[in-house]
């Protein structure tokens, strides 16, 4: 039972992460390779707040969202100056810089040794979440709230503006819209989603080190998004289900780890290639043609 609930917790965290990526990559068509950097910033900032202050979850989540959002301004600046491939490469650089800082700023992050003994989340400053059952319920509630926020944004005129930017930013500017501001807000939201996922992850696992927030993790999140589908919440959920459940299924088949791990990578890669050929918008994604 606990194993099943553990999978649910991971699933909830990945849905939030992939929704964050969906905000920029799926809705606005801005391919970023630094989602794990924001995930890591959220995890480390969240850890520091949990360890230093006895604050309720909502306060810590707000602080984490704002701080990761502020970091996203660096990416926003790059998006104003660089287009397409060049912008994506800049986000790759951002990912590498954040990882290097997390890995080498030992005084603050404890570098490769990681930080252990992270306190559990407290709801309203009273109930401390202990064990996998409360975490499964709590992360499910947070995930549902994030899905609700994503759906509300997608259906709103702001969602329409992001989809229009995806189709033709030049035309949108000529229609009197400040596309730079709209993109900056999308990056902020995307980073905030990832930051909250990082906070949940750190407090659940009780230990973090920089290897959870590598470029590989960013690629993994983007793969999950494209496999599940871009532009809507259903796709993000499908993507998270695929990447979280698949390794467990392989485990059930009884393959040895030495085979299961590389096989999993091959299946992810193959799924991505097949999806791009058969259904470029992903399993449950929306047609995003221009």
């Amino acid at each position: 039972m606990n194993y099943f609930l553990h999978i649910i917790v991971l699933l909830n965290i990945y849905i939030i992460l992939i929704l964050g990526a969906n905000m920029t990559v799926g809705m606005a068509g801005l391919l970023t390779l630094c989602q794990a950097a924001f995930y890591g910033i959220g995890a480390y900032i969240g850890t520091m707040l949990l360890m230093q202050f006895d604050l309720p979850f909502i306060v810590i989540a707000l602080i984490v969202s704002v701080i990761t959002g502020v970091f996203s301004l660096l990416i926003s600046y790059a998006s104003l100056k660089l287009k397409n491939d060049y912008f994506t490469l800049a986000t790759l650089g951002f990912q590498m810089i954040i990882f290097t800082i997390l890995y080498n700023w030992v005084d603050v992050t404890k570098g490769p040794y990681g930080i252990s003994g992270i306190p559990a989340i407290k709801i309203l400053g009273l109930w401390s979440l202990k064990g996998v059952v409360p975490y499964a319920i709590f992360t499910a509630v947070v995930m549902c709230a994030m899905v609700g926020i994503f759906v509300a944004l997608k259906k709103s005129p702001y969602g329409r503006l992001l989809r229009a930017i995806r189709a033709d930013e030049t035309a949108v500017k000529a229609l009197g819209r400040n596309t730079s501001a709209a993109k900056t807000r999308a990056f902020f939201l995307s980073a905030a989603f990832s930051g909250i996922a990082g906070l949940l992850y750190a407090s659940y696992v009780r230990f973090i080190d920089p290897t959870s927030f590598t470029l590989n993790e960013s690629l993994f999140i983007i793969c999950a998004l494209f496999i599940g589908g871009v532009g809507n919440a259903k796709g993000s959920i499908a993507g998270a289900l695929f990447v979280v459940i698949l390794p467990e299924l392989l485990r059930f088949i009884g393959l040895p780890d030495a085979v299961a791990a590389p096989l999993r990578e091959i299946i992810y890669g193959l799924a991505l290639v097949v999806i791009m050929f058969v259904r470029p918008q992903g399993m449950l994604g929306e047609e995003m043609s221009k």
Binding site: A152, S156, Y158, R160
Partner: peptide, 17 residues
């Protein structure tokens, strides 16, 4: 058609909430 309107009400992410 709506994208061309001068009325930008709702085009800020806070607005729907």
């Amino acid at each position: 058609m709506k994208m061309a309107s001068v009325d930008t009400m709702g085009e800020h992410p806070i607005s729907p909430f």
